[in-house]
Design a protein around this nucleic acid. Structure first.
Lengths: 159, 159
DNA sequence: CCTGAAAAATTATTCGC
DNA sequence: GCGAATAATTTTTCAGG
């Protein structure tokens, strides 16, 4: 297995550091150092290195969607009328600006995109679908699947 | 609009605090206080209150999936052979234990669950699908949609 | 590349107003 | 909620192995 330029060397201790920081982004270097069994100096250096290399992209508070009244999750399949490069780029750029769209992936299937949309309730979802999503560049049609229950989800970091 | 017991009162300043903390989970109370135009004392108190109320559920480092060699994303529709309560609970509990399953929702549609699965590459996905997902309790059939491009996604906080 | 300790900087907390 | 003083932590630095 050869090195890839975009994949810095990450050893066992780096992984331990990442795992702990992923679970507690506010842990101090002191405590983290204890937990991985090293002194603070190398741990601080490793964190800096992982940040500089773009492995750690940032730190965020996780918020409870329910407590914020954003409990409605729907998935939307989107089909475009034009899938030439320029159309895709226009669609991508427009989607990235929508706060209600939490995730969006281009899919190799009978539809072109799959998006996760978070709203207050189904009424607001209906509004977002009709007014915003359908108005995205080159959208031909959509199919919506509504979540009845969240079995596993990351804490939201958006408000 | 009446208060809901599970939705604490969140005013304009709380929202500002949450928005900033969601974007930078490591910001200090001092800087945060400046940004929201209050002194540190009430800002620290508000953060404690939001944490205690469960609005802020935690803090996490965001990691680059690509740099960690976890760039493969697939969505799987899962149909169960048994959708009685006990079967659903068994499925839910089993799914929550799988690190590859980043998200999972119960869906009101022709399939029962939609899951987002993250792996190293399609080879590993095939292995996870065949060995792990298909072996989850009561799984009757699955359909997979592979992401070709991530247009918008939250930083992963899992390793 | 790590240890350990000292120094410097920041941060969180407390309290009277 | 303010602002200052105090207290506690944290980050950084550096000599040494």
């Amino acid at each position: 297995m050869t090195d890839r330029p975009d994949m810095p060397e990450i050893d066992r201790i780096d992984r331990a550091i990442l795992r702990i920081l992923a679970a507690d982004g506010r842990i101090s270097t002191t405590v983290l150092a204890d937990r991985v069994g090293l002194s603070k100096t190398p741990v601080a250096a490793r964190i800096r290195r992982l940040e500089a290399a773009g492995v750690i992209t940032g730190y965020a508070a996780h918020l409870s969607a329910r407590k914020l009244g954003l409990g409605h999750v729907a998935f939307v399949e989107v089909r475009l009328s034009d899938t030439r490069e320029a159309a895709l780029l226009a669609f991508n750029a427009a989607v990235r600006k929508l706060p209600e769209v939490e995730e969006c992936y281009m899919i190799a299937a009978s539809f072109d995109y799959l998006m996760k949309v978070r709203t207050r309730d189904i009424t607001e979802y209906r509004r977002v679908l009709g007014e915003t999503i359908s108005a995205l560049p080159h959208v031909a049609s959509t199919s919506t699947y509504v979540s009845m229950e969240s079995v596993k989800e990351p804490g939201i970091s958006q408000i």
